[in-house]
C-alpha cells in the first residue's frame, strides 16, 4: 500500500535524524571542557570498578574508536551507571518511560480533541459571546507560565481543597496493600494524574482551538462547502461531515510541530508534580551532575519526540489522501 511506503520513508528519516542527534550529543560530551572520564565514571567507585567502566565505555581509546564503542553500547542498551542511583542507567530509564508516555500522550490527544471541538463551535458562532470567551480563554491558557500554573493548581486543588494528592504518581498505602486489585491501583494512578494532566491540557488546548477556529473559518469559504449545502445537507451535516473534518487537518500539523515544545512542558510538569517520568529524571540528573543518566534521558526524550512525530505524520497522511497518493 501507498501508506505503508510513506511510513517506511518517514521511519528512515527518523533513524537518520536520531543518529545525527546521537552523534552531536556524543561530541558534546566528549569535547566539552573537563575530563570525559570524570563525567562518565562515578567518582565514588572503587578504582577497579572505574577502570572496568572506562574500558566498557572505551574512554581510554581514540575518539573514533570511542564513537564506535558508543554506538555499539547504544544498541546493546549500555549507557553506563547512574552516579546517583548506582544502578544501570538503562534500567532507570525503562522504568520511567511508561509514566512519561502516559502523561504525554493523554495530554496531547485530549487537548487536541477538545481544541478541535471547541474551535469548531467558536468558528461556527463567529463573533458571538461564546466565540469571544473561547478565544480569550485559549489565548490566556496558551500563554500562562506552565510551572506557575502547576503550582497554582496544586495550591488550590490539592492543598486548599484537598481533592487530589499534592505530588507523585502512586499512594504507597494503596500499592502496599496486598488486597488492592488492579482496578484500585489504576484508579490511584488516575487520581494522581488529574492535576498534571490538567496542567498540560490547559497549556495545549488553546493553540489547537485557535488553529481549528481559523482553519474552520477558511474551510467554510471553500467551494465544496457550497456543494455540500447545494446537495441539501443540513447545516449540521455540512459542518460535521465536510467542514470540521477538513479543518482539523492543520490542527494535526500544529500538534506535530509543537511536539518538542510539548515535551519541554512535560518535563516541567513532571518536575513540579514529582511525576516519575524521564523529563523529571533529566532535570534531576542535571542538577545532580549525573551525566550518564542525563545523556540517556535526553536521547530517549528525543526518540519519544521523533516517534510521536512519525505517528502524527502517519495520522495526517491517513486523514488527507492528497498526501498518500
Amino acid at each position: 500500500m501507498e501508506l505503508r511506503s510513506f511510513i517506511f520513508r518517514r521511519l528512515i528519516q527518523v533513524v537518520v535524524i536520531f543518529f545525527i542527534i546521537q552523534t552531536a550529543l556524543f561530541l558534546l560530551f566528549r569535547l566539552a571542557p573537563g575530563d570525559p572520564v570524570e563525567r562518565m565514571v562515578d567518582p565514588t567507585m572503587t578504582p577497579e570498578d572505574a577502570d572496568r567502566l572506562v574500558a566498557v565505555l572505551g574512554l581510554d581509546q581514540p575518539l573514533w574508536t570511542q564513537y564506535a564503542i558508543y554506538l555499539r553500547n547504544f544498541f546493546q542498551g549500555e549507557f553506563g551507571t547512574s552516579f546517583y542511583y548506582g544502578q544501570p542507567v538503562v534500567e532507570i530509564i525503562w522504568e520511567k518511560l511508561p509514566n512519561t508516555i502516559l502523561l504525554f500522550t493523554t495530554s496531547i490527544i485530549l487537548s487536541a480533541l477538545v481544541g478541535i471541538a471547541l474551535g469548531k463551535i467558536a468558528a461556527w458562532h463567529k463573533g458571538s459571546r461564546t466565540d469571544t470567551w473561547l478565544t480569550i480563554g485559549s489565548l490566556v491558557t496558551h500563554t500562562v507560565f506552565l510551572p506557575w500554573l502547576a503550582l497554582l493548581l496544586i495550591w488550590v486543588f490539592a492543598y486548599k481543597l484537598g481533592w487530589f494528592p499534592i505530588t507523585g504518581m502512586i499512594s504507597e498505602d494503596v500499592w502496599l496493600d496486598p488486597g488492592a486489585g488492579l482496578w484500585a491501583k489504576a484508579l490511584d494512578i488516575g487520581h494522581h494524574l488529574v492535576l498534571p494532566l490538567s496542567t498540560l491540557f490547559l497549556i495545549h488546548f488553546g493553540s489547537s482551538l485557535l488553529v481549528m477556529r481559523s482553519s474552520m473559518l477558511d474551510t467554510l469559504k471553500e467551494d465544496y462547502i457550497l456543494t455540500a449545502r447545494a446537495k441539501g445537507l443540513t447545516d449540521k451535516e455540512v459542518r460535521n461531515r465536510h467542514a470540521a473534518r477538513n479543518a482539523a487537518l492543520p490542527v494535526v500539523t500544529g500538534v506535530g510541530l509543537g511536539l518538542a515544545f510539548s515535551i519541554n512542558g512535560g518535563a516541567l510538569t513532571e518536575t513540579v508534580f514529582t511525576w516519575p517520568g524521564i523529563g523529571r529524571e533529566l532535570v534531576f540528573a542535571v542538577s545532580h551532575a549525573d551525566y550518564p543518566l542525563a545523556q540517556a534521558a535526553f536521547l530517549l526524550i528525543a526518540l519519544v519526540v521523533l516517534v510521536a512525530n512519525v505517528i502524527v505524520d502517519v495520522l495526517y497522511a491517513y486523514l488527507d489522501p492528497r498526501i498518500r497518493y
Binding site: I21, L28, A260, F261, I263, L282, A289, A294, F298, I301
Partner: peptide
Amino acid sequence: VMPTLLFVLMLAAL
C-alpha cells in the same frame, strides 16, 4: 525536533 529547554539543561550540566 530538539526540545530547546531540555537541550539547554544538558548544556548547563556540561
